[in-house]
């Protein structure tokens, strides 16, 4: 059986995937982006504070209004840059947010899945506002960072498509309205 034909099929499929991947970059109108992020020293630790801008697409808003919960994961990463070997990852942390609309109370409920904290808001911007302000997340001990080495910190907000209801998922991979993740926001960490 000649395998060239099936190889060709696979190749076309992967090319299509590669073509689809960078499309998130063009979805500015409803993009999610990290506006500002910094690490401050509090006592012996580095503490992250970041501002994130959530601009929901009409489709996402509609889904939210209709009772679909949306999940975002704030990913925090610190790694050591090295010259001749690959970078060494020091810390990886996730903060997971869930936003849900309550019809009975006419409220938006934001739940920090990591800490279990729940907040209710009567408007969506207020709810998003809470999610936007990431404050006081302890990331790494100062002693873990050695003097003279270069360290980078990065923050990214990812929209968890796999947490969507199942029927929405295939569309979420194809429809740009569901590309609601930010790029990595990376800055160098000064010890």
């Amino acid at each position: 059986m000649p395998s060239s034909a099936s190889n060709k099929g696979c190749l076309i499929y992967f090319l299509a995937l590669i073509w689809l991947l960078p499309m998130s970059a063009f979805a500015d109108a409803f993009a999610v982006a990290v506006k500002r992020a910094e690490m401050n020293i509090q006592g012996d630790r580095y503490v992250l504070s970041a501002d994130i801008d959530y601009q929901l697409s009409p489709r996402a808003k509609e889904a939210l209004q209709n009772g679909v919960s949306l999940f975002w994961v704030v990913q925090i990463k610190v790694w050591q840059q090295r010259d001749y070997v690959w970078d060494k990852k020091l810390v990886y942390k996730e903060v997971r947010y869930r936003i849900q609309y309550h019809a009975l109370l006419n409220m938006y409920r934001v739940r920090n899945e990591s800490s279990g904290e729940v907040d209710n808001f009567s408007t969506l911007p207020a709810a998003l506002d809470l999610m936007s302000r990431v404050r006081d997340i302890q990331v790494i001990d100062r002693v873990d960072l050695l003097a003279g080495e270069r360290y980078l910190a990065g923050v990214k907000v990812s929209f968890d498509r796999d947490a969507l209801p199942l029927p929405l998922r295939p569309a979420a991979y194809v429809n740009l309205q569901w590309y609601l993740s930010s790029d990595w926001y990376v800055w160098s960490l000064k010890n």
């Binding site: 000649p2 395998s3 060239s4 034909a5 099936s6 190889n7 060709k8 099929g9 696979c10 499929y13």
Partner: peptide
């Protein structure tokens, strides 16, 4: 499906 399609097309 793509692999199967490839096989069928090759045939």
């Amino acid at each position: 499906s793509v692999v199967l399609l490839g096989l069928v097309v090759a045939n």
